[in-house]
Design a protein around this nucleic acid. Structure first.
Length: 410
RNA sequence: CGGGGUGUAGUGUAUCGGUAACAUGCAUCGUUCGGGACGAUGAGACACUGGGUUCAAUUCCCAGCACCCCGACCA
Protein backbone atom coordinates (compact mmCIF):
# COMPACT_ATOMS: atom_id res chain seq x y z
CA UNK A 1 0.00 0.00 0.00
CA UNK A 2 1.32 3.38 -0.98
CA UNK A 3 0.59 5.74 1.86
CA UNK A 4 -0.01 8.52 -0.65
CA UNK A 5 -3.09 6.56 -1.77
CA UNK A 6 -4.25 5.58 1.69
CA UNK A 7 -7.36 6.92 3.37
CA UNK A 8 -7.30 8.49 5.83
CA UNK A 9 -4.00 10.02 6.97
CA UNK A 10 -2.83 10.63 10.51
CA UNK A 11 -3.90 13.66 12.52
CA UNK A 12 -1.73 15.92 14.56
CA UNK A 13 -4.37 16.96 17.09
CA UNK A 14 -5.89 14.62 19.63
CA UNK A 15 -9.69 14.54 19.56
CA UNK A 16 -11.36 17.00 21.89
CA UNK A 17 -12.47 15.47 25.16
CA UNK A 18 -10.71 12.17 24.63
CA UNK A 19 -9.00 10.89 27.76
CA UNK A 20 -8.32 7.23 27.22
CA UNK A 21 -5.15 6.30 25.40
CA UNK A 22 -6.79 3.95 22.90
CA UNK A 23 -9.25 6.68 21.94
CA UNK A 24 -6.53 9.28 21.37
CA UNK A 25 -4.03 7.11 19.56
CA UNK A 26 -6.39 5.06 17.41
CA UNK A 27 -8.12 8.22 16.20
CA UNK A 28 -4.90 10.13 15.62
CA UNK A 29 -3.29 7.24 13.77
CA UNK A 30 -6.39 6.90 11.59
CA UNK A 31 -7.54 3.44 12.75
CA UNK A 32 -11.02 4.30 13.99
CA UNK A 33 -13.58 7.08 13.67
CA UNK A 34 -16.45 7.86 15.99
CA UNK A 35 -19.97 8.15 14.60
CA UNK A 36 -21.68 8.67 17.94
CA UNK A 37 -21.10 7.66 21.53
CA UNK A 38 -20.24 3.97 21.58
CA UNK A 39 -20.30 3.56 17.83
CA UNK A 40 -17.16 3.46 15.68
CA UNK A 41 -16.06 2.94 12.13
CA UNK A 42 -13.11 0.61 11.74
CA UNK A 43 -11.05 2.52 9.19
CA UNK A 44 -8.85 0.53 6.79
CA UNK A 45 -5.85 0.21 9.14
CA UNK A 46 -8.05 -0.59 12.14
CA UNK A 47 -9.90 -3.14 10.07
CA UNK A 48 -6.60 -4.75 9.03
CA UNK A 49 -5.62 -5.21 12.67
CA UNK A 50 -9.03 -6.60 13.58
CA UNK A 51 -8.82 -9.02 10.66
CA UNK A 52 -5.44 -10.22 11.90
CA UNK A 53 -6.87 -10.70 15.37
CA UNK A 54 -9.76 -12.61 13.80
CA UNK A 55 -7.43 -14.78 11.72
CA UNK A 56 -5.63 -15.90 14.85
CA UNK A 57 -8.92 -16.64 16.60
CA UNK A 58 -10.22 -18.49 13.52
CA UNK A 59 -7.11 -20.60 13.25
CA UNK A 60 -7.19 -21.74 16.87
CA UNK A 61 -10.94 -22.37 16.91
CA UNK A 62 -10.80 -24.40 13.71
CA UNK A 63 -8.21 -26.59 15.43
CA UNK A 64 -10.87 -27.48 18.02
CA UNK A 65 -13.13 -28.65 15.21
CA UNK A 66 -15.39 -25.61 15.25
CA UNK A 67 -16.99 -24.39 12.00
CA UNK A 68 -17.46 -20.80 10.95
CA UNK A 69 -20.83 -19.53 9.75
CA UNK A 70 -22.71 -16.24 9.79
CA UNK A 71 -26.01 -15.59 11.55
CA UNK A 72 -28.40 -12.66 11.13
CA UNK A 73 -28.50 -9.66 13.44
CA UNK A 74 -32.16 -8.75 13.07
CA UNK A 75 -34.22 -11.20 15.12
CA UNK A 76 -37.97 -11.71 15.51
CA UNK A 77 -39.39 -11.13 18.99
CA UNK A 78 -40.95 -14.61 18.99
CA UNK A 79 -37.71 -16.52 19.23
CA UNK A 80 -36.61 -14.44 22.19
CA UNK A 81 -39.94 -15.06 23.88
CA UNK A 82 -39.26 -18.78 23.83
CA UNK A 83 -36.62 -18.37 26.51
CA UNK A 84 -38.20 -15.33 28.13
CA UNK A 85 -35.19 -13.16 27.34
CA UNK A 86 -37.22 -10.67 25.31
CA UNK A 87 -38.27 -9.46 28.74
CA UNK A 88 -35.35 -10.39 31.00
CA UNK A 89 -32.73 -8.92 28.68
CA UNK A 90 -34.82 -5.88 27.79
CA UNK A 91 -32.37 -3.44 29.29
CA UNK A 92 -29.49 -4.49 27.13
CA UNK A 93 -31.31 -5.37 23.92
CA UNK A 94 -32.26 -2.83 21.27
CA UNK A 95 -35.88 -3.57 20.46
CA UNK A 96 -37.80 -1.98 17.65
CA UNK A 97 -41.11 -2.11 15.84
CA UNK A 98 -41.80 -1.91 12.13
CA UNK A 99 -45.13 -2.54 10.38
CA UNK A 100 -46.56 -3.68 13.73
CA UNK A 101 -43.93 -6.41 14.03
CA UNK A 102 -41.36 -6.40 16.79
CA UNK A 103 -37.69 -7.10 16.26
CA UNK A 104 -34.56 -7.17 18.34
CA UNK A 105 -31.01 -6.38 17.33
CA UNK A 106 -28.73 -9.19 18.30
CA UNK A 107 -26.73 -8.90 21.51
CA UNK A 108 -25.95 -12.64 21.44
CA UNK A 109 -27.05 -15.73 19.50
CA UNK A 110 -27.96 -18.61 21.84
CA UNK A 111 -31.60 -18.65 20.71
CA UNK A 112 -30.62 -18.60 17.05
CA UNK A 113 -28.14 -21.47 17.43
CA UNK A 114 -30.59 -23.61 19.37
CA UNK A 115 -33.23 -22.93 16.72
CA UNK A 116 -30.77 -24.00 14.02
CA UNK A 117 -29.95 -27.21 15.78
CA UNK A 118 -33.53 -28.26 16.58
CA UNK A 119 -34.60 -27.61 12.99
CA UNK A 120 -31.99 -29.99 11.69
CA UNK A 121 -33.21 -33.01 13.70
CA UNK A 122 -29.77 -34.36 14.47
CA UNK A 123 -28.93 -37.91 15.42
CA UNK A 124 -26.87 -38.39 18.61
CA UNK A 125 -23.91 -39.30 16.46
CA UNK A 126 -24.00 -35.81 14.90
CA UNK A 127 -23.04 -34.25 18.24
CA UNK A 128 -21.21 -32.25 19.38
CA UNK A 129 -22.01 -29.26 17.17
CA UNK A 130 -19.50 -26.41 17.33
CA UNK A 131 -20.21 -23.26 15.35
CA UNK A 132 -19.02 -19.70 15.58
CA UNK A 133 -19.17 -16.42 13.78
CA UNK A 134 -17.70 -12.94 13.78
CA UNK A 135 -20.34 -10.27 13.73
CA UNK A 136 -21.62 -7.08 15.19
CA UNK A 137 -23.25 -7.09 18.58
CA UNK A 138 -25.65 -4.40 19.70
CA UNK A 139 -25.85 -3.74 23.40
CA UNK A 140 -27.63 -0.88 25.03
CA UNK A 141 -24.91 -0.09 27.55
CA UNK A 142 -25.93 2.52 30.10
CA UNK A 143 -22.73 4.35 29.36
CA UNK A 144 -20.37 3.84 26.47
CA UNK A 145 -16.84 4.68 27.52
CA UNK A 146 -13.09 4.32 27.23
CA UNK A 147 -12.74 4.79 23.51
CA UNK A 148 -13.41 1.56 21.72
CA UNK A 149 -13.32 -0.54 24.90
CA UNK A 150 -17.02 -0.25 25.68
CA UNK A 151 -19.25 0.50 22.73
CA UNK A 152 -22.92 -0.05 22.05
CA UNK A 153 -22.10 -1.68 18.76
CA UNK A 154 -18.95 -3.73 18.49
CA UNK A 155 -17.45 -6.78 16.90
CA UNK A 156 -17.62 -10.10 18.61
CA UNK A 157 -16.60 -13.61 17.89
CA UNK A 158 -19.09 -15.94 19.46
CA UNK A 159 -18.80 -19.71 19.49
CA UNK A 160 -21.56 -22.10 20.53
CA UNK A 161 -21.23 -25.77 21.30
CA UNK A 162 -24.03 -28.32 21.74
CA UNK A 163 -23.47 -31.66 23.43
CA UNK A 164 -25.27 -34.82 24.49
CA UNK A 165 -23.94 -34.80 28.03
CA UNK A 166 -22.65 -32.44 30.67
CA UNK A 167 -19.33 -34.27 30.67
CA UNK A 168 -18.89 -33.76 26.97
CA UNK A 169 -19.81 -30.10 27.30
CA UNK A 170 -17.18 -29.55 29.98
CA UNK A 171 -14.62 -31.52 28.02
CA UNK A 172 -14.96 -29.13 25.12
CA UNK A 173 -15.29 -26.17 27.48
CA UNK A 174 -11.82 -26.88 28.80
CA UNK A 175 -10.54 -27.38 25.30
CA UNK A 176 -11.79 -23.90 24.47
CA UNK A 177 -10.10 -22.46 27.56
CA UNK A 178 -6.82 -23.83 26.21
CA UNK A 179 -7.54 -22.48 22.74
CA UNK A 180 -8.37 -19.06 24.17
CA UNK A 181 -5.16 -18.96 26.17
CA UNK A 182 -3.23 -19.75 22.99
CA UNK A 183 -5.12 -17.06 21.11
CA UNK A 184 -4.42 -14.39 23.71
CA UNK A 185 -0.80 -15.41 23.94
CA UNK A 186 -0.43 -15.05 20.17
CA UNK A 187 -2.05 -11.63 20.47
CA UNK A 188 0.61 -10.63 22.98
CA UNK A 189 -1.82 -10.67 25.89
CA UNK A 190 -1.40 -12.32 29.26
CA UNK A 191 -4.95 -13.42 30.00
CA UNK A 192 -6.01 -14.59 33.44
CA UNK A 193 -8.87 -17.07 33.56
CA UNK A 194 -11.25 -15.66 36.14
CA UNK A 195 -14.40 -17.11 37.67
CA UNK A 196 -17.44 -14.87 37.35
CA UNK A 197 -21.22 -14.92 37.41
CA UNK A 198 -23.27 -15.73 34.34
CA UNK A 199 -25.23 -12.47 33.96
CA UNK A 200 -28.26 -12.70 31.68
CA UNK A 201 -26.82 -15.86 30.14
CA UNK A 202 -26.90 -18.48 32.85
CA UNK A 203 -27.18 -18.96 36.60
CA UNK A 204 -24.04 -21.07 36.49
CA UNK A 205 -20.64 -19.48 36.91
CA UNK A 206 -18.76 -18.40 33.84
CA UNK A 207 -15.11 -17.76 33.13
CA UNK A 208 -13.70 -14.46 32.01
CA UNK A 209 -10.38 -13.86 30.33
CA UNK A 210 -8.95 -10.81 32.04
CA UNK A 211 -5.93 -8.75 31.06
CA UNK A 212 -4.43 -6.62 33.82
CA UNK A 213 -4.67 -2.91 33.09
CA UNK A 214 -5.36 0.20 35.13
CA UNK A 215 -7.98 1.30 32.61
CA UNK A 216 -9.95 -1.92 33.02
CA UNK A 217 -13.43 -1.61 34.50
CA UNK A 218 -13.32 -4.93 36.29
CA UNK A 219 -11.59 -5.76 39.54
CA UNK A 220 -10.30 -9.27 39.89
CA UNK A 221 -8.97 -11.04 42.97
CA UNK A 222 -6.13 -13.29 42.13
CA UNK A 223 -3.08 -14.96 43.55
CA UNK A 224 -0.13 -12.58 44.01
CA UNK A 225 2.51 -14.86 42.56
CA UNK A 226 0.43 -15.81 39.54
CA UNK A 227 1.67 -19.36 39.72
CA UNK A 228 -1.59 -20.97 40.63
CA UNK A 229 -4.75 -20.28 38.68
CA UNK A 230 -6.89 -18.75 41.40
CA UNK A 231 -8.75 -15.69 40.13
CA UNK A 232 -12.28 -14.47 40.82
CA UNK A 233 -14.33 -11.52 39.68
CA UNK A 234 -15.54 -8.99 42.25
CA UNK A 235 -19.11 -10.30 41.84
CA UNK A 236 -18.39 -13.69 43.30
CA UNK A 237 -15.26 -13.22 45.42
CA UNK A 238 -16.18 -13.81 49.03
CA UNK A 239 -12.85 -13.36 50.77
CA UNK A 240 -10.70 -10.27 51.18
CA UNK A 241 -7.40 -8.95 49.92
CA UNK A 242 -4.48 -10.44 51.82
CA UNK A 243 -6.20 -13.79 52.38
CA UNK A 244 -4.14 -16.87 51.74
CA UNK A 245 -4.67 -18.33 48.31
CA UNK A 246 -5.92 -21.92 48.44
CA UNK A 247 -3.77 -23.02 45.56
CA UNK A 248 -0.28 -21.92 46.49
CA UNK A 249 -0.61 -20.31 49.89
CA UNK A 250 0.49 -16.83 48.88
CA UNK A 251 -1.54 -13.64 49.16
CA UNK A 252 -4.62 -12.69 47.18
CA UNK A 253 -4.40 -9.27 45.57
CA UNK A 254 -6.95 -7.07 43.77
CA UNK A 255 -6.20 -5.74 40.28
CA UNK A 256 -7.98 -3.73 37.65
CA UNK A 257 -8.45 -5.69 34.45
CA UNK A 258 -10.00 -5.58 31.00
CA UNK A 259 -12.28 -8.45 30.10
CA UNK A 260 -11.34 -9.63 26.62
CA UNK A 261 -13.25 -12.91 26.61
CA UNK A 262 -16.00 -14.70 28.49
CA UNK A 263 -17.23 -18.28 28.30
CA UNK A 264 -20.40 -19.86 29.68
CA UNK A 265 -21.34 -23.45 30.45
CA UNK A 266 -25.03 -22.86 29.84
CA UNK A 267 -26.49 -26.29 30.52
CA UNK A 268 -29.83 -27.60 29.27
CA UNK A 269 -32.02 -24.58 30.05
CA UNK A 270 -32.04 -23.28 26.48
CA UNK A 271 -32.77 -26.69 24.99
CA UNK A 272 -35.58 -27.33 27.44
CA UNK A 273 -37.26 -24.01 26.85
CA UNK A 274 -36.88 -24.22 23.09
CA UNK A 275 -37.48 -27.91 22.62
CA UNK A 276 -34.06 -28.95 21.35
CA UNK A 277 -33.97 -32.65 22.15
CA UNK A 278 -32.23 -35.68 20.79
CA UNK A 279 -33.57 -39.22 20.91
CA UNK A 280 -31.46 -41.48 23.07
CA UNK A 281 -30.89 -45.16 22.21
CA UNK A 282 -33.66 -46.13 24.63
CA UNK A 283 -36.09 -43.91 22.74
CA UNK A 284 -36.29 -41.16 25.35
CA UNK A 285 -36.03 -37.46 24.52
CA UNK A 286 -33.18 -35.65 26.15
CA UNK A 287 -32.24 -31.96 26.06
CA UNK A 288 -28.91 -30.94 24.57
CA UNK A 289 -26.22 -29.24 26.61
CA UNK A 290 -25.16 -25.82 25.42
CA UNK A 291 -22.14 -23.63 26.06
CA UNK A 292 -21.14 -20.29 24.54
CA UNK A 293 -17.82 -18.54 24.22
CA UNK A 294 -17.07 -14.92 23.31
CA UNK A 295 -14.11 -12.76 22.41
CA UNK A 296 -14.41 -9.09 21.52
CA UNK A 297 -11.92 -8.37 18.73
CA UNK A 298 -12.58 -4.63 18.75
CA UNK A 299 -12.06 -4.56 22.49
CA UNK A 300 -8.83 -6.50 21.95
CA UNK A 301 -7.81 -3.78 19.49
CA UNK A 302 -8.23 -1.12 22.17
CA UNK A 303 -6.64 -3.25 24.87
CA UNK A 304 -3.50 -3.74 22.78
CA UNK A 305 -3.14 0.04 22.41
CA UNK A 306 -3.67 0.58 26.13
CA UNK A 307 -0.93 -1.92 26.88
CA UNK A 308 1.52 -1.26 24.07
CA UNK A 309 2.29 2.38 23.33
CA UNK A 310 4.76 5.12 24.16
CA UNK A 311 4.58 8.91 23.97
CA UNK A 312 5.03 8.76 20.20
CA UNK A 313 2.32 6.29 19.36
CA UNK A 314 1.20 2.71 19.11
CA UNK A 315 3.52 -0.31 19.30
CA UNK A 316 1.67 -3.25 17.73
CA UNK A 317 2.59 -6.82 18.60
CA UNK A 318 4.07 -8.28 15.42
CA UNK A 319 1.27 -10.83 15.12
CA UNK A 320 -1.35 -8.13 14.49
CA UNK A 321 0.70 -5.27 13.07
CA UNK A 322 -1.41 -3.74 10.28
CA UNK A 323 1.48 -4.25 7.86
CA UNK A 324 4.69 -6.27 8.10
CA UNK A 325 6.88 -3.28 7.33
CA UNK A 326 6.68 0.49 7.12
CA UNK A 327 8.89 1.47 4.21
CA UNK A 328 10.07 5.07 4.10
CA UNK A 329 11.67 6.74 1.13
CA UNK A 330 13.84 9.76 1.89
CA UNK A 331 14.33 11.37 -1.48
CA UNK A 332 15.31 8.14 -3.11
CA UNK A 333 12.06 7.11 -4.72
CA UNK A 334 13.48 5.17 -7.67
CA UNK A 335 15.46 2.83 -5.50
CA UNK A 336 12.66 2.62 -2.96
CA UNK A 337 10.06 1.78 -5.62
CA UNK A 338 12.14 -1.24 -6.60
CA UNK A 339 12.51 -2.40 -3.02
CA UNK A 340 8.78 -1.96 -2.57
CA UNK A 341 8.13 -4.20 -5.59
CA UNK A 342 10.58 -6.82 -4.42
CA UNK A 343 9.17 -6.96 -0.91
CA UNK A 344 5.68 -7.36 -2.30
CA UNK A 345 6.83 -10.13 -4.60
CA UNK A 346 8.14 -11.95 -1.53
CA UNK A 347 4.69 -11.70 0.03
CA UNK A 348 5.61 -9.00 2.52
CA UNK A 349 2.79 -6.61 3.44
CA UNK A 350 4.28 -3.17 2.98
CA UNK A 351 3.06 0.27 3.89
CA UNK A 352 5.16 2.45 1.62
CA UNK A 353 5.40 6.11 2.61
CA UNK A 354 6.05 7.60 -0.81
CA UNK A 355 4.73 11.08 -0.01
CA UNK A 356 6.71 14.17 -0.86
CA UNK A 357 6.98 15.39 2.70
CA UNK A 358 9.78 15.96 5.15
CA UNK A 359 11.62 13.11 6.84
CA UNK A 360 10.44 14.18 10.27
CA UNK A 361 6.83 13.85 9.29
CA UNK A 362 7.39 10.34 7.90
CA UNK A 363 9.19 9.22 11.04
CA UNK A 364 6.56 10.73 13.30
CA UNK A 365 3.80 8.97 11.38
CA UNK A 366 5.66 5.67 11.43
CA UNK A 367 5.96 5.91 15.21
CA UNK A 368 2.31 6.86 15.57
CA UNK A 369 1.00 4.07 13.32
CA UNK A 370 3.19 1.57 15.13
CA UNK A 371 4.07 -1.05 12.52
CA UNK A 372 6.64 -3.46 13.95
CA UNK A 373 9.40 -3.15 11.35
CA UNK A 374 10.56 0.12 9.80
CA UNK A 375 12.74 0.38 6.72
CA UNK A 376 14.38 3.58 5.48
CA UNK A 377 15.75 3.95 1.98
CA UNK A 378 17.87 7.00 1.27
CA UNK A 379 20.99 7.99 -0.61
CA UNK A 380 22.83 8.25 2.67
CA UNK A 381 22.42 4.50 3.12
CA UNK A 382 23.66 3.59 -0.35
CA UNK A 383 22.52 0.14 -1.38
CA UNK A 384 21.77 -0.79 2.21
CA UNK A 385 18.40 -0.49 3.87
CA UNK A 386 18.09 0.92 7.33
CA UNK A 387 16.13 -1.39 9.61
CA UNK A 388 14.56 -0.42 12.92
CA UNK A 389 12.12 -2.21 15.17
CA UNK A 390 9.34 -0.02 16.61
CA UNK A 391 10.24 -0.97 20.15
CA UNK A 392 13.98 -0.50 19.78
CA UNK A 393 16.05 2.67 19.69
CA UNK A 394 18.83 1.43 17.46
CA UNK A 395 18.82 0.74 13.76
CA UNK A 396 20.92 -1.47 11.47
CA UNK A 397 22.02 -1.18 7.87
CA UNK A 398 21.06 -4.37 6.09
CA UNK A 399 20.93 -5.81 2.61
CA UNK A 400 17.55 -6.72 1.15
CA UNK A 401 18.30 -10.40 1.77
CA UNK A 402 19.07 -9.71 5.41
CA UNK A 403 15.88 -7.70 5.70
CA UNK A 404 13.83 -10.56 4.29
CA UNK A 405 15.51 -12.94 6.70
CA UNK A 406 14.65 -10.65 9.59
CA UNK A 407 11.03 -10.69 8.45
CA UNK A 408 11.06 -14.48 8.14
CA UNK A 409 10.19 -14.19 4.49
CA UNK A 410 13.39 -15.55 2.97
C1' C B 1 -30.82 7.81 35.29
C1' G B 2 -27.84 11.04 39.20
C1' G B 3 -23.24 14.23 39.48
C1' G B 4 -19.29 17.06 36.89
C1' G B 5 -17.13 19.17 32.42
C1' U B 6 -17.16 20.85 27.29
C1' G B 7 -19.87 22.73 22.71
C1' U B 8 -16.52 28.75 18.11
C1' A B 9 -13.78 26.98 10.14
C1' G B 10 -12.40 19.72 8.59
C1' U B 11 -9.43 19.29 13.34
C1' G B 12 -7.32 21.63 17.91
C1' U B 13 -7.83 26.17 20.42
C1' A B 14 -8.23 31.92 21.47
C1' U B 15 -11.40 36.06 22.01
C1' C B 16 -15.23 39.44 23.32
C1' G B 17 -22.05 42.51 25.40
C1' G B 18 -21.08 46.02 19.39
C1' U B 19 -21.46 39.31 14.21
C1' A B 20 -14.81 36.49 15.24
C1' A B 21 -8.52 35.35 15.72
C1' C B 22 -4.51 31.75 15.72
C1' A B 23 -2.51 26.97 14.73
C1' U B 24 -3.13 22.78 11.97
C1' G B 25 -5.35 20.67 7.80
C1' C B 26 -6.85 21.82 2.58
C1' A B 27 -5.55 24.57 -2.38
C1' U B 28 -1.62 27.20 -5.43
C1' C B 29 3.60 28.70 -5.91
C1' G B 30 8.72 28.92 -4.52
C1' U B 31 12.83 27.38 -1.32
C1' U B 32 13.89 22.93 1.48
C1' C B 33 14.62 17.56 2.28
C1' G B 34 17.31 12.23 8.30
C1' G B 35 12.68 13.61 13.43
C1' G B 36 5.96 16.96 12.21
C1' A B 37 11.34 22.63 7.72
C1' C B 38 10.49 27.84 5.74
C1' G B 39 8.13 31.89 2.99
C1' A B 40 3.99 33.80 0.06
C1' U B 41 -1.05 33.64 -1.58
C1' G B 42 -6.09 31.58 -1.25
C1' A B 43 -10.65 29.05 0.11
C1' G B 44 -12.95 27.66 4.59
C1' A B 45 -17.67 29.87 10.59
C1' C B 46 -25.78 31.49 10.48
C1' A B 47 -20.08 30.75 17.05
C1' C B 48 -24.89 23.22 18.79
C1' U B 49 -30.54 24.22 18.84
C1' G B 50 -34.64 26.98 20.92
C1' G B 51 -36.19 30.70 24.20
C1' G B 52 -35.12 34.92 27.61
C1' U B 53 -32.48 39.64 29.29
C1' U B 54 -30.57 43.90 26.33
C1' C B 55 -30.55 49.39 21.89
C1' A B 56 -27.24 45.19 20.71
C1' A B 57 -25.92 38.11 22.51
C1' U B 58 -21.06 33.96 19.90
C1' U B 59 -20.45 36.26 24.83
C1' C B 60 -25.10 36.82 30.31
C1' C B 61 -29.61 33.60 31.97
C1' C B 62 -32.97 29.23 31.15
C1' A B 63 -34.26 24.79 28.56
C1' G B 64 -33.03 21.06 25.15
C1' C B 65 -29.47 18.24 22.42
C1' A B 66 -24.49 16.19 21.63
C1' C B 67 -19.79 14.51 23.34
C1' C B 68 -16.22 13.30 27.46
C1' C B 69 -15.45 11.92 32.74
C1' C B 70 -17.38 9.75 37.72
C1' G B 71 -21.38 6.55 39.55
C1' A B 72 -25.39 2.93 38.98
C1' C B 73 -25.37 -1.33 35.23
C1' C B 74 -23.11 -4.74 32.05
C1' A B 75 -20.54 -11.23 27.68
Amino acid sequence: MRYSNSFPKTKKETPSGAESVNHKLLVRAGFIDQLMSGSWTLLPFGFRVVNKINDIIREELNKTGAQELLMPLLHPKEIWNETGRWTTAQEIMYQLEKDKKEFGLSFTHEEIVVDLIRKHQLSPKDYPVKVYHFSTKFRHELRAKSGILRGREFMMKDLYSAHLTEDDMYKYYHQVIDAYLKIFKRLGLDAIVTEASGGVFTDKNSHEFQVLSEVGEDTIYHCECGKCDFSQNEEIFKGKVGDKCEGCNCKIVASKAIEVGNIFPLGTMYAQKMGAFYTDSDGSKKPIWLASYGIGPTRVLGTLVELFHDDKGIIWPESVSPFDVHLISLNDDQKCDKIYEKLQKEGVEVLYDDRQVGAGEKFADADLIGITHRLVVSQRNGEKIEYKNRCSEKSDLLSLEQVLKKLNHS
